[in-house]
């Protein structure tokens, strides 16, 4: 309970000068999954995050349909300029939480607020795979709220940053997963969003791209943006984040400075015999 107390104190007294950018209050997310039979080991690879959550969530059967209670009563306040890591095991509700605070999944209970238009960048953040990279740059940029002219102005930067070269004129179905992730990252950060959310995307790039993306994240934070990072790499979290939320089975277990929370998380693996 210690960590939560720390946050409570900080919210009530200190850090008043930085205004909040994301607030969650008792947030609950329940969603419906179709075609979900009890044998949850299907290989529907299109939406692995659903599948992952399916395997570990509390499940209520309604024939072919299942309700998944992925996030339960999560509350926190994040301020401008903070970089927040979200850690937890597979299926602990991290990605769902991220989607909820990006305004993509409506809350089933509780409320959430955010500043501006959050940009979510996930491994599965769907670009249209049948279309070429350049079409996706335009559509992605427009969907992030840029004007066609702004997208055209930033087009070269986006392609250059993604490092995919001539592949930009091929359909994205021809891309390697790393190339797709790099293009997504380049598009999502081109709009300099108020809130950038990254869902395990950095792990896919090579070492050089990881360095560049870390620099881009630092830039966004300097522009008083807020960064959320979901990752299974504790090293990446330690490097980029100054605060961490630890999720388990849909609940927020611990919320505090990176070092404390990651250390406790790692300790839980050892005691759990992993």
């Amino acid at each position: 309970m210690e960590a939560t107390e720390t946050v409570r104190d900080r919210d009530r007294t200190g850090a008043r000068e930085a205004t909040p950018s994301v607030i969650c209050s008792e947030l609950d997310i329940v969603y419906t999954v179709f075609g979900a039979r009890k044998k949850a080991t299907t290989t529907e690879g299109e939406q692995p995050w659903l599948e992952r959550i399916l395997r570990q969530r509390r499940q209520v059967d309604v024939g072919n349909v299942r309700k998944v209670h992925a996030v339960k009563g999560v509350s926190f306040v994040v301020r401008h300029g903070e970089a927040v890591g979200i850690i937890g095991r597979n299926g602990s509700g991290k990605s769902t939480l991220l989607r909820a605070i990006a305004g993509l999944i409506p809350p089933s209970g509780g409320r959430a607020w955010a500043a501006g238009r959050p940009a979510l960048l996930g491994v599965n953040a769907v670009l249209l795979t049948g279309l070429t990279g350049s079409r996706n740059v335009m559509i992605g940029g427009l969907a992030l709220g840029l004007s066609p002219r702004e997208v055209r102005e930033r087009y070269d930067d986006i392609v250059e940053f993604s490092g995919i070269g001539d592949f930009v004129d091929l359909p994205m179905s021809a891309y390697s997963s790393g190339m797709g992730a790099r293009l997504r990252f380049a598009i999502s950060t081109a709009a300099a969003p108020d809130i950038l959310m990254i869902d395990e995307a950095l792990a896919t790039g090579d070492a050089e791209f990881q360095t560049r993306s870390r620099e881009r994240i630092a830039e966004i934070r300097e522009q008083a943006g807020t960064v959320f990072l979901v990752s299974h790499s504790n090293a990446a979290i330690r490097e980029s984040c100054d605060r961490v939320l630890w999720m388990d089975q849909g609940r927020l277990i611990m919320d505090g400075p990176t070092e404390d929370v990651v250390a406790a998380y790692e300790a839980s693996h050892r005691k759990g015999g992993r």
């Binding site: 309970m1 210690e2 395997r55 570990q56 693996h269 005691k271 759990g272």
Partner: peptide, 16 residues
């Protein structure tokens, strides 16, 4: 509750 995983051993005050 169909809990497929046991709560993490190191969780503070074991909320889970």
């Amino acid at each position: 509750t169909l809990s497929l995983t046991e709560p993490p051993a190191g969780a503070p005050a074991s909320d889970a």
